[in-house]
Design a protein around this nucleic acid. Structure first.
Lengths: 170, 170
DNA sequence: TGTAGTAGACAACCTGGTTGTCTAACTGAG
DNA sequence: CTCAGTTAGACAACCAGGTTGTCTACTACA
């Protein structure tokens, strides 16, 4: 019995435990992926970097644009871009057609890290499949999708875990 | 079909989607809980606050202790304690038996917010149960527990999502 | 008694965000 | 053609939540 250990009397924790289980699953995947990518030479590559690069590939070709698409201020986007550029994953060159803009592009190295990241995640998923069975894992994914909605896979607003509490519109 | 939309050719994303599904599930629970607690008057109450208070109830009666138990520096623990004290969830009084120590205690208000938080999570879980069926949710929880291990529910080292990549011991 | 370890406070710093302000460049209506 | 309004990006200041390092006061112990 894991539920209820070491907690004061009368506290049933199934709901909170469920949340921790989900967080634990996410973290175990992401930690393993980050470690594996680091081992392959892509040190300190974070999920947010992947999100940003996918948004760039998806058409966000300026910092402001990237900010809008990832629901983050353009300054935050610019900071992310700066590290991606510095590591060679993204290129930033003045737009000949509009001198205000710096046009972003994912470099071949950037595409490679995305490809590798994907492979790593597929491998991790395969490991889970071996542990649980293909049917059970598929069912788990389907059930999760039912619960959180298909849009859970959308990537906007990544950082906001505890914002906008009940009508606190600023 | 949600997989593969808007992504470049040849990218299968089942593994990464699974991670996003888990994150989405966690966030949807925690966001809802935070919002509900705020609506009940506990504004800006975060999961880390709950973890800290549970650790205090569990016996971490000084800042250093809390730091050790939640795998965080004692200074970070002290900062968390400062906000909990300031909001009235935790009391901090000099230990008559040891003048170095400030003894921490969760106040009645603190216990109330924990109780309410739990109720909120139970309600959220019940909602999921209605959506998915009791059997399916129980199976999902069991499967997740299998995958991440029972210790996923443990609360130490909360913040470290992407640390310690593959033998990078400093 | 003297020495080693512990609790906590303080300061400086880092990361990943935020807002505000400013300039340069583009756009479109008149 | 011009001028007002939007836009892109840069810079500065700030914040939250962590970190490390240093210092003092106190306790424990041989």
């Amino acid at each position: 019995m894991s539920t209820g250990a070491a907690y004061p009397a009368g506290m049933s924790r199934a709901g909170a435990d469920l949340a921790l289980l989900l967080l634990g699953g996410f973290r175990s995947l992401v930690d393993a992926a980050t470690a594996e990518l680091a081992a392959r030479g892509h040190v300190d590559f974070r999920p947010s970097h992947e999100f940003a690069m996918r948004a760039i590939i998806g058409g966000a070709d300026t910092a402001s644009d990237l900010g809008r698409r990832t629901a983050v201020s353009k300054q935050a986007a610019a900071k992310t871009i700066a590290v991606l550029v510095q590591r060679g994953y993204v290129s930033s060159e003045p737009d000949p057609a509009d001198a205000r803009r710096n046009r972003l592009q994912v470099t071949p190295l950037g595409r490679e890290v995305l490809r590798e990241g994907e492979a790593v995640f597929e491998e991790l998923r395969a490991r889970w499949e071996r542990k649980l069975g293909a049917d059970a894992l598929a069912r788990l994914e389907a059930d999760l999708a039912t619960l959180v909605g298909d849009d859970a896979v959308r990537v906007d607003a990544p950082g906001r875990v505890a914002r906008d509490p009940a009508g606190e519109t600023p």
